[in-house]
């Protein structure tokens, strides 16, 4: 994979996880399988990230009994996580809009 692209993806991974959890609480496997298809990353990447986010106070965990096997660990967005998501989302939207404007400018010139 192009190393530039890897840096992009690494940067938005946390934002994507926050956005997923803002919609509904979720467990590791679910987050990993939804993101790995979209971002093309190893599913294992999600657990170090979740631990980091938990220690940063962005997410909290709780256990839910499952019908098969041991209880499942669910992640929930904390108040701090929600604020962080809003800030990151605003920054992302501003940034992509600015980049898109520049790219379109380029397109008009060449055509």
């Amino acid at each position: 994979m192009d190393s530039n692209l890897v840096q992009f993806k690494k940067g938005v991974l946390e934002l994507c996880v926050l956005a997923l959890l803002a919609r509904s609480d979720s467990y590791g496997y679910d987050i990993a399988s939804r993101l790995s298809a979209a971002i093309d990353m190893g599913e294992g990447t999600i657990y170090p990230l979740m631990r980091r986010m938990q220690k940063d106070g962005l997410v909290s965990t709780y256990l839910v009994e499952s019908s098969s096997g041991p209880p499942r660990k669910y992640y929930r967005l904390t108040e701090g996580g929600r604020k962080n998501l809003n800030a990151q989302k605003a920054a992302w939207t501003d940034f992509t809009r600015a980049v898109a404007a520049i790219l379109e400018l380029d397109l008009e010139k060449t055509s």
Partner: peptide
């Protein structure tokens, strides 16, 4: 326990252990 849970959920979703392990990535790097 996190990764065991991942394998369990993968099994429940009908994936083989080999498939799940390969998708997780290199355990040494993790």
């Amino acid at each position: 326990a996190d990764y065991e849970g991942h394998f369990d959920a993968g099994r429940a979703a009908g994936r083989s252990d080999a498939d799940v392990a390969a998708s997780l990535g290199d355990p040494a790097r993790l």
